[in-house]
């Protein structure tokens, strides 16, 4: 999957809502992807969630967050927060 607007800083948050697992992806904004037009920003969110759905076959909520707001880590394992109580 290649979405140039998405940089290296993202966080996957897993939750269980009722009987279903829920997946949310927080993605840090960067200046090259930022637009002052709300329609562009909504289109960006839709593009990212569409690409994730295409690859994962899952509905994924995309949340855009500020640059620098996610914890920095080196390993992939730290890019996932699993809040599910199984």
């Amino acid at each position: 999957m290649n979405i140039p607007e998405v940089g290296n800083h993202f966080m996957i948050i897993l939750d269980r809502i009722g009987p279903l697992d829920d997946m949310k992806v927080q993605i840090e904004m960067n200046e090259s992807a930022f637009s002052d037009r709300m329609s562009d920003m909504m289109a960006l969110k839709k593009k990212i969630s569409g690409a994730l759905r295409h690859v994962l076959n899952l509905a994924v909520e995309v949340e855009l967050v500020e640059h620098g707001s996610l914890p920095r880590s080196e390993g992939k394992s730290k890019k996932v927060i699993d809040n599910r109580k199984i």
């Binding site: 930022f34 709300m38 920003m41």
Partner: peptide, 28 residues
Amino acid sequence: GDFGIIRMVVDNTDNAYSILHNAGFTVS
């Protein structure tokens, strides 16, 4: 919903851009 776009006209645009950009904000 989860985010907003702040739009403003200031008396020194270039300076404001540099300051906000250097402070880590996503700005244009």
